[in-house]
Amino acid sequence: MINWRKSSHSGGGGAGGQDCVEVADLTPVIAVRDSKDPDGPKLALDTTAWRTLAHQIKNGHHDLA
């Protein structure tokens, strides 16, 4: 069984603040999914790519205008 957990930074946008990203540590990759669509597509990143993406998100590089 995969142990998904919601990002501590999820929420705040969308209908009722339900915009949630979930992550799972599947060493050697990190899996990412939309909590509203748990059976939908997942993104698998190696740890370097995950750290880069997380850093970019934290610094607003992927914010919508």
Rank of each mutant, 00 (worst) to 15 (best):
M1Y: 02
M1W: 02
I2F: 07
N3S: 10
W4T: 00
W4Y: 02
W4I: 00
W4Q: 05
R5W: 04
R5G: 00
K6G: 00
S8F: 07
H9K: 15
S10I: 10
S10N: 05
S10V: 10
S10Q: 03
G11C: 00
G11H: 05
G12P: 02
G12L: 05
G12D: 00
G12A: 09
G13D: 07
G13W: 06
G13A: 14
G13K: 14
G14D: 09
A15Q: 14
A15Y: 12
G16N: 08
G16F: 05
G16W: 03
G16K: 06
G17N: 12
D19H: 14
D19R: 14
D19V: 12
C20M: 05
C20Y: 13
V21A: 03
E22S: 08
V23E: 00
A24N: 05
A24V: 09
L26D: 07
L26F: 09
L26G: 01
L26T: 02
T27D: 12
P28L: 11
P28N: 12
P28S: 13
V29R: 08
V32H: 02
V32D: 05
R33A: 01
R33S: 01
R33V: 00
D34Q: 03
D34E: 08
S35D: 06
K36M: 03
D37E: 06
P38R: 06
P38F: 03
P38G: 02
D39K: 15
G40A: 09
G40V: 10
P41G: 10
P41M: 10
K42I: 08
K42W: 02
L43D: 00
A44Q: 09
A44N: 07
T47V: 07
T47P: 01
T47F: 11
T48G: 13
A49S: 13
A49Y: 01
W50G: 02
W50K: 04
R51D: 10
R51S: 12
T52L: 12
T52H: 10
T52R: 13
L53G: 01
A54M: 13
A54N: 12
H55D: 09
Q56S: 05
I57Q: 06
I57F: 01
K58S: 11
N59T: 14
N59A: 04
N59S: 10
N59H: 15
G60F: 08
H61K: 15
H61N: 11
H61Q: 15
H61Y: 14
H62N: 08
D63V: 13
D63L: 14
D63N: 15
L64D: 04
A65D: 11
A65V: 12
